[in-house]
Write a protein that binds this DNA or RNA. Structure first.
Lengths: 221, 221
DNA sequence: TAGATTGTTAATCGATTAACAATC
DNA sequence: TAGATTGTTAATCGATTAACAATC
């Protein structure tokens, strides 16, 4: 991630405009959320920073320090109420509302993303899919959607209140498409293309490049 | 990422045993590699730390500092020879050999990964796909592969010299499968399941959870 | 040579950890 | 109350940046 006031980081993660808490902290909150869900699924009601840290793969001091950026959520001697902490993390991350998302690219990855049920479960709703291939345009995809031509993008983003774009396209098209979705009003990008997108500083970008991740693994093998 | 001697980080990235250079540096090398390719595609022969930094989205000082962990690759007054730096980064990351990979999960994501040509281009070769669904087992997938039952995993890993596993399965099965691939000799894991895997410290894990990434974006929107 | 740019050092900045008083 | 665990402070650790001598 990166911030307007720091150098942009190229790690997989979000490129960040600014924040009241460090970006590394923000990017750990979803992991804490995931860990709380996991604990709740095992019928736990309450959790200590120690146990949450174990589940999340960090230190207990880090859990407490991270949370302290946003308020006091625990009770001395007891720990954290799982349901309450969960709701607070959702509030902090702005997950207490639905987010409307578009996908550019109706290839194999685009299809996999459209069918990934976890998005809707987590309140991310895919409301449009675009492609530039005439053979794909018009084809049904997912639940009641149809692949749309790129020229309908601006209108659809506005009419369907879409604020996040997922780019599932080749690197060769990604920069141009990124500029287009930003011009049409998208406010954040999840980028699967292996390229470092140049976008305005107020547009956060999260990169998920499996090859870069594999290469980062290979060093240690 | 995390190291044996630091607390395990939960960011998307690799969980790391140990290294002679900091892990954040290692994880930037693939990005530099990507940037060099991009520059070479525009017929550049030589690049300054300044220009490479611009392309990669970091500072020029960081490029030079990062590279200095591994040797001296540039010439004062001139910059870096792109082809030479590229080959050196490949050597450092151990990309100067093929890597053999398996995928667990023949769902939509598994299919998208099998058809993602960039893996083979970058010397990551998918040599087996496994699933526990009898309806999928035996079906052809990708280029000359057939979905195999889980019980064939250990033998295949060994006979096909597989060292990396990609988990494209639900979170509910991921921990068990991770243990299984490690037991069978896999040395690194690329994990698409939304769960923090518990594996031995010498097994690096890279996590790619799109929901966690979207949640990290939502904070800034 | 003059100009440009590296590799490296020292300074700065920021993040993590350890420790403990507060308190449930 | 006694034991446990938080929230926070200060210390440590590590990463980034700035600056510049070396040198192509």
């Amino acid at each position: 991630m990166s911030c307007a006031n720091r150098a942009a980081s190229v790690m997989e993660g979000v490129i960040v405009p600014r924040a009241d808490a460090p970006d590394v902290v923000i990017q750990r909150l979803p992991i804490y959320l995931r860990s709380l869900d996991h604990l709740a699924a095992r019928d736990r009601q309450v959790v200590s920073s120690q146990d949450l840290a174990l589940e999340a793969g960090v230190s207990a001091a880090q859990v407490r320090k991270d949370l302290s950026h946003f308020g006091e959520f625990g009770k001395q001697g007891l720990g954290y109420d799982i349901a309450y902490l969960r709701s607070q993390l959702e509030r902090i991350l702005h997950l207490d509302r639905p987010w409307y998302v578009l996908i550019v690219g109706a290839g194999a990855l685009g299809h996999a993303l459209v069918h990934y049920g976890t998005f809707a479960q987590r309140n991310y709703h895919i409301r449009a899919v675009f492609d530039n291939d005439d053979l794909k345009i018009g084809q049904p995809i997912g639940d009641g959607l149809v692949v749309q031509p790129m020229k309908e993008m601006c209108e659809t983003i506005q009419s369907r209140q879409i604020s996040i774009a997922i780019l599932a396209i080749p690197a060769s098209h990604a920069q141009q498409v990124a500029e287009e979705v930003v011009r049409c009003g998208v406010r954040g990008i999840l980028n699967y293309a292996p390229i470092n997108l140049a976008v305005p500083q107020n547009i956060p970008v999260a990169n998920l490049d499996p090859v870069a991740s594999l290469q980062g693994l290979s060093f240690y093998l």
